[in-house]
Amino acid sequence: MANYSTSEFRSGMKVMLDGDPCSILDNEFVKPGKGQAFNRVKLRNLKTGRQWERTFKSGETLEGADVVDREMEYLYTDSEFWYFMEPDTFEQYQADAAAVGDSHLWLKENERCDVTLYNGTPLSVAPPNFVELEIVETDPGLKGDTATGGTKPAKLTTGAVVKVPLFISTGEVIRVDTRTGEYQNRVSKS
């Protein structure tokens, strides 16, 4: 991979730092009128998800990381690995639990999601911002109660548990914001 100098660092660039692939979030040039120039760089470690700030002397270089984001179709899981397919090439990839993380709560078979590959292997998986999932278990609905604003837990087909309004029943499909895990609206009535 190419080397990048601090002046080339851009948000979104993927670099190797301390042996791990990292994504550059922000790069601030800091220089007193007299004295050493620095770059104050915000990074995210793509393996651990940790975000932090590292200061470099201006002009230092980092090696680029072989990291690419691909849109893939989620196929299935055998509970050890999660399988994804690139829709154009039909090439399949298996991601382990470390790569999938909490995203498994929102993966619906045959839906598109973003898979980040590092040296050709899935490093992380990001579900769509919104998914529609069916409720498999919740307390019986209070028919017609759309006004009181109370909530109850509901378990979805993926195993995720979200808070839903009291009038929602088992078998209904709801829309969830995967970034917050919050119920958005009811998609269909059973």
């Binding site: 730092l17 301390d18 800091v30 007193p32 050493q36 104050r40 700030e53 200061t55 470099f56 002397k57």
Partner: peptide, 24 residues
């Protein structure tokens, strides 16, 4: 206070870092 990685240098380097990152 900061993460300068494996940066190495003389007195003025560390003073410049403190001044520009923490004090300024």
């Amino acid at each position: 206070h900061l993460d300068p990685g494996d940066m190495a240098g003389e007195r003025d380097l560390w003073l410049d870092l403190l001044m520009s990152h923490l004090l300024e």
